[in-house]
Structure formats: structure tokens, C-alpha cells
């Protein structure tokens, strides 16, 4: 097997992997919001309420590792 064949397989494998990951990401985004476990749209408010004394959308709590 020469390097160009390897290149071909590597290319195909990686692209397939990336596509699977991308689609599972889409599935994750929409299903977790439908089930109500996550709310992604609230993050949009990070741009709107961005004064330094506004409450963060999700606060970093003291006891948690950053």
C-alpha cells in the first residue's frame, strides 16, 4: 500500500468521522432542548445583558473548578 492509498483511506475515514460527529451534534442540540434538559437560546442573552453588574447567564460558582 503506497502513501497515496493511505492518504485516500485517511481522508475518507476522517471525513466520515467528522460528518458523524457533526450530525450527532445537531441531534444533540435539538433533542436535548426538546427534552428540556438544556436551553441553548438563553445564551443569546449573554450579548444583551453584558454590563459588568448584570447577572451572568450561568455563574461560575466558587467551589467549582473553572
Amino acid at each position: 500500500m503506497d502513501i497515496f492509498q493511505l492518504q485516500g483511506y485517511a481522508y475518507f475515514g476522517l471525513v466520515t468521522l467528522m460528518v458523524v460527529i457533526l450530525y450527532s451534534y445537531i441531534y444533540h442540540l435539538y433533542s436535548s432542548e426538546k427534552k428540556g434538559t438544556k436551553d441553548f437560546e438563553k445564551y443569546g442573552n449573554m450579548a444583551l445583558n453584558d454590563e459588568i453588574d448584570d447577572a451572568p447567564v450561568e455563574k461560575i460558582s466558587k467551589d467549582e473548578k473553572k
Binding site: 457533526l22 437560546e41 450579548a47
Partner: peptide, 28 residues
């Protein structure tokens, strides 16, 4: 534009999920 347009218009991004998807799509 993801910051300034929502901020100036007072409207949150239409779909935050779409923005996340576009990000990874673009990178890829």
C-alpha cells in the same frame, strides 16, 4: 456581527443553535 448586531438592535440571536452548528461546519 454575532455580538454587535444583537446588541445594537436589542434582539437576541435568532437561533443560537444554528450559530453553534455554523461554527463547527465552517471550521470543518
Amino acid at each position: 456581527i454575532y455580538y454587535f448586531l444583537p446588541k445594537e438592535s436589542g434582539q437576541a440571536v435568532y437561533s443560537y443553535k444554528l450559530s453553534l452548528l455554523s461554527f463547527w461546519g465552517l471550521m470543518f
